[in-house]
C-alpha cells in the first residue's frame, strides 16, 4: 500500500516536471521561430545582423527592416496566436464543445463586421477605434450565438451551439460583404486586413492593443483552475461551491478581449483557436493550469510560422496569414476529427 502511494506521488512529481520541461522546450521553439521570422522574407537577413540591430543599431536598410517591419510583424503574430488559442481553449472548456472557437462561434466574424461598419460610417482607420468596435462586435455576436443556441430544442447542447454559430457567422459575413460591395472606399481600406494579416503593422499598433490582450491573458490564466472545475459540468461545479455565473461572465470578458483585440489588429484569422487547444490537450491532459500556458506558446508558434510560410512560398509577394492558416489548419482538423472518431 505504502509503495503504491509513494509511486503515485513520484509519478505525479515526474508528470509536473515533464510538463514544465515541455513548456521550456516549446518556449525554445518559439524563440527559434521568432528568429526565423525576423531573418527570412522578401529580403533575407543574417542572424548577425539581427543581433546587431538590437545591440549596435546603425540605420542600415537591413537594421531598419528588422526594427520597423519584421519585429513588429512577428510580435503581433505571436500575440494574436497566443490570444486566439487561449480564447479557443476557454470556449471549448466553458461550453464542453470540441468545435467551439472564436471563428466557428461567430466571435471573429462579429468583431470583423463591427470594424467594417466602423470604417464605413466613421471612415476612421485608427486602431484604437477599431479595437472598441471589435470588442462590441465580438460581444454582441457571442451573446447572440449563446442565446440562439439556448432556445433550440434540448438547450445549449454542443450541436445547437455549433449550428447557431455557423448560422450567425454566415449571416454576419454576408452583411460584411454587402457593405464592402456598396462602399468601394471601405473595401480598399480594409481588404488586406479582412483576409487576416499581420503585415504592415508598426510598433504603435502593437502598443495600442497590448493592454487589452494582456488583461485578457491574465484574466484567462487566473481563471484556469476554475475552468478545470467547470469542465465537470454546471451542477457538479456549483455543488462544489463555485459561483459558476460569475466565472462564466469573467471568462466571456476574457474571450471577448482576446478575440476582439486579435481581430482589431490582424483581422479574422481562423483555425488557431480551434486546433491549438486540441493539440495541447492531447499532449498535456485536462488541467487548464497547464493547457492555457501551452496554448499561448503553441498558438504563437503556429501563427508565427504560418505567416513566415506565407512570405516564403510566393516570394517576392506574400499570402496573408489568414489565408495560410486554413491551408495548415483544415487538413489537420480533418485528421483530428477522424482520429477522435476512430478512438471513441
Amino acid at each position: 500500500m505504502l509503495t503504491t502511494e509513494k509511486n503515485s506521488y513520484l509519478r505525479q512529481q515526474r508528470k509536473h516536471l515533464q510538463l514544465f520541461t515541455g513548456l521550456l522546450l516549446a518556449g525554445l521553439i518559439l524563440w527559434l521561430s521568432l528568429l526565423a521570422s525576423i531573418a527570412w522574407g522578401a529580403a533575407d537577413i543574417s542572424f548577425k545582423d539581427i543581433y546587431q540591430a538590437f545591440t549596435a543599431f546603425d540605420g542600415s536598410s537591413s537594421h531598419l527592416i528588422i526594427r520597423t517591419v519584421r519585429l513588429p510583424r512577428s510580435l503581433i503574430a505571436m500575440l494574436v496566436g497566443a490570444a486566439l488559442a487561449i480564447a479557443g481553449a476557454i470556449m471549448q472548456g466553458l461550453t464542453r464543445n470540441p468545435l467551439a472557437s472564436p471563428s466557428i462561434l461567430g466571435v471573429n466574424a462579429g468583431a470583423a463586421l463591427a470594424v467594417v461598419v466602423g470604417t464605413f460610417i466613421l471612415g476612421s482607420n485608427s486602431l484604437s477605434v477599431y479595437a472598441w468596435f471589435a470588442f462590441a462586435g465580438a460581444a454582441i455576436s457571442a451573446i447572440t450565438v449563446y442565446l440562439l443556441g439556448s432556445i433550440g430544442r434540448g438547450g445549449l447542447t454542443p450541436f445547437n451551439l455549433t449550428i447557431a454559430g455557423a448560422a450567425i457567422t454566415a449571416f454576419i459575413s454576408s452583411i460584411t460583404s454587402a457593405i464592402l460591395i456598396l462602399s468601394q472606399r471601405t473595401l480598399e481600406e480594409i481588404r488586406f486586413w479582412l483576409a487576416g494579416s499581420v503585415a504592415g503593422r508598426d510598433m504603435n499598433l502593437l502598443w495600442q492593443v497590448l493592454p487589452y490582450i494582456c488583461i485578457g491573458l491574465i484574466l484567462a490564466l487566473a481563471l484556469s483552475k476554475q475552468i478545470t472545475i467547470l469542465s465537470l459540468g454546471e451542477d457538479t461545479a456549483r455543488s462544489l461551491g463555485q459561483s459558476t455565473a460569475l466565472i462564466k461572465i469573467l471568462a466571456a470578458i476574457s474571450i471577448i478581449l482576446l478575440a476582439g483585440a486579435s481581430v482589431a489588429i490582424a483581422g479574422p484569422i481562423g483555425f488557431v483557436g480551434l486546433i491549438v487547444p486540441h493539440i495541447v490537450r492531447f499532449l498535456v491532459g485536462v488541467d487548464y493550469r497547464w493547457i492555457l500556458p501551452y496554448c499561448a506558446i503553441f498558438g504563437a508558434i503556429i501563427v508565427l510560422n504560418a505567416d513566415l510560410l506565407g512570405r516564403l512560398v510566393v516570394r517576392p509577394t506574400e499570402l496573408p496569414v489568414g489565408l495560410v492558416m486554413p491551408l495548415i489548419g483544415a487538413p489537420f482538423f480533418i485528421y483530428l476529427i477522424r482520429w477522435k472518431l476512430h478512438n471513441s
Partner: peptide
C-alpha cells in the same frame, strides 16, 4: 456556495468528466 459545499456534497445523476481525467485528479477536485 463554499460554506454549503463544506457541509453538503451532491452527486448528480450522470456526472460528466472531460476525456482523460484521472481518478486522482477527479477526487482532488
Amino acid at each position: 456556495g463554499k460554506t454549503v459545499a463544506k457541509k453538503l456534497g451532491m452527486l448528480p445523476q450522470s456526472p460528466i468528466a472531460p476525456e482523460g481525467l484521472t481518478v486522482r485528479d477527479l477526487v482532488a477536485m
